[in-house]
Design a protein around this nucleic acid. Structure first.
Lengths: 165, 165
DNA sequence: TTAGAAACCGCAATTATATTGCGCAACTTT
DNA sequence: AAAGTTGCGCAATATAATTGCGGTTTCTAA
């Protein structure tokens, strides 16, 4: 059984940072920028994927061009917070394609949903026929996104951080 | 000046859907799945990128493994909503690496921020020394994410939708 | 400290992809 | 129907991704 590096060194951080910024960068470029040759670079990427540091790669698609003019964050309150009821709700959410993200929250509300819709009408239909119609949903507070002024992928990665351990 | 296809056909939608799901899929696979040969598939991808349908590609990094144990959504209210003041705030936000997303909202609050931090302590420092210290910030309502139960990239793409136009 | 193991690196060879240059067919536009 | 346009696929070429190995540095533990 091969030992698995737990601590990331400067090179790993550089790779993660580059891939977070440009997920389709070639391994050759990745290697050049990281200062090592292609083979070990590829091996590192594979290792980072297998160790779970990299959960996947995704193209960032423009919602408006695909017909989604409206983005909304909705705070959801449930009537019951029993484990089974929460899971029931999560399951339901999973089946709704217009809901892109679902975060369980502490205090205030129970869930924060990010929803995309063609327009306000489609959103209203979603709320009326899906959300409100769902059992256990107590209240829905809608917050319309007027403009997203910053959206960086994932996490900040300090490439120059001092290696620990 | 080359004409640019505006309407997406089934093949384009398939490509977008596949790349949204797996941003590092090879062009060969993309082509195979779309039912066309590699060259035209690559040309379509380039066209989709240039037309802005694809804004970029990003690796999805696991926050916890990078030391970010805490994710928070914060609702921010400003004292002044004058255009200049809003922009001032957005600029500030841009410079804070722990803020990954900033959405301007209608009603309720002025902005919704998604923030990642090593721990609660680091977040508190962020709020005290950056957010609250910033001019024009009136109030901050923090919502801690306990668990993200769904996070799909971007938008729903119905590959089988009927072509319009 | 020192032999052996472990973790990594880079070179060189091989396989797979990405890219380009064209000619062809379908579809429009006069 | 001639001419222009758009998009496809084949074939050739240029790049990239992978694999197999030998060599080096770093640990480990006797």
């Amino acid at each position: 059984m091969p030992t698995r590096r737990v601590k990331l060194d400067r090179i790993d951080r550089r790779i993660l940072d580059d891939l977070q910024e440009n997920g389709r960068m070639t391994n050759v470029d990745l290697a050049r920028r990281a200062g090592i040759s292609a083979p070990p670079c590829l091996r590192r990427v594979r290792a980072l994927e297998e160790a779970g540091f990299i959960r996947g790669y995704h193209a960032d698609i423009a919602p408006e061009l695909l017909g989604y003019e409206l983005t909304v964050f909705a705070l959801i309150g449930l009537s019951s917070q029993a484990k089974a009821d929460l899971q029931k709700f999560e399951q339901l959410v999973e089946s709704w394609p217009e809901v892109r993200e679902c975060h369980m929250l502490a205090g205030e509300a129970d869930f924060l949903l990010k929803v995309v819709a063609e327009n306000w009408d489609a959103y209203k239909t979603f709320v009326d026929e899906r959300l409100t119609a769902a059992p256990n949903v107590n209240h829905v507070k809608t917050m319309q996104v007027l403009q997203t002024t910053k959206h960086r992928p994932g996490v900040p990665i300090d490439v120059d951080a001092v290696d620990e351990e």
